[in-house]
């Protein structure tokens, strides 16, 4: 039987667009006829704090939040935040993280507090399946820094059971008309990035 239960945790820093990415994923899943719940925390955390969204997809979903240690895909917009959240991942789960580095001012202004220089390495020490990509740089090359979202969705789409067409259609529906083409391109670019390609 094909697996139909998926737990996805998306993390990042307030203002990075974490909430939009989760919206698109949930819609794709709902349109595929599955039950979906997603849970996020607004408010305080949006002011530059850690933001996280839980998305649960299954024939029938109960809890809107994920059982700690049961995440199939951890998608992170910032590398230290991916490291912070690895304990949510399950044994054979995948980490997809942008190598974006956001050092908060509490670190620069507090003696002895550091931002890890090798966050991705620290994740790889623990987890086997890790995709780290320079999503900011790729977005820049595509011409718009805001495309990070869509690129990451493209990468993630390889690890979820939905057809490419479904993703593209939802993107078309959710993105402003004049940004559709560039977003589709960003998605395709992300979709080319897989475990096999980054490890090579």
């Amino acid at each position: 039987m094909e697996k139909s239960n998926f737990n996805i945790l998306i993390v990042g820093v307030g203002g990075q667009g974490v909430l939009l990415a989760s919206e698109i994923l949930s819609t794709v899943a709902m349109n595929a006829g599955l039950d979906v719940k997603k849970s996020e925390v607004h408010g305080m955390s949006q002011r530059g704090g850690v933001v996280s969204t839980h998305i649960k997809i299954a024939p029938k979903v109960y809890s809107p939040t994920i059982h700690q240690g049961q995440v199939d895909v951890l998608l992170s917009f910032e590398q230290a935040e991916a490291l912070r959240a690895v304990n949510w991942l399950k044994k054979d789960g995948v980490v997809i993280t942008s190598t974006t580095t956001l050092v908060p001012s509490i670190v620069t202004s507090t003696k002895g507090m550091n931002y890890p220089e090798n966050a991705v390495e620290l994740i790889k020490d623990r987890v086997e399946r890790v995709i780290a990509l320079e999503a900011d740089k790729i977005a820049g090359e595509l011409g718009n820094p805001r495309l990070v979202n869509t690129i990451l969705l493209g990468v993630m789409s390889n690890y979820l059971p939905f057809e490419k067409k479904a993703w593209l259609e939802t993107l078309k529906a959710k993105v402003k008309a004049k940004f559709v083409d560039i977003n589709l391109k960003a998605f395709e670019t992300g979709r080319e990035i897989k475990l096999s390609t980054v490890d090579a």
């Binding site: 530059g48 240690g69 935040e81 912070r84 690895v86 304990n87 931002y115």
Partner: peptide, 19 residues
């Protein structure tokens, strides 16, 4: 009870801040 498998790293805090 399914238990978490990966140890988290002890990291700096990231509190919300004034914009």
């Amino acid at each position: 009870v399914a238990m978490p498998v990966y140890e988290p790293e002890k990291l700096f805090p990231r509190p919300p801040v004034l914009c």
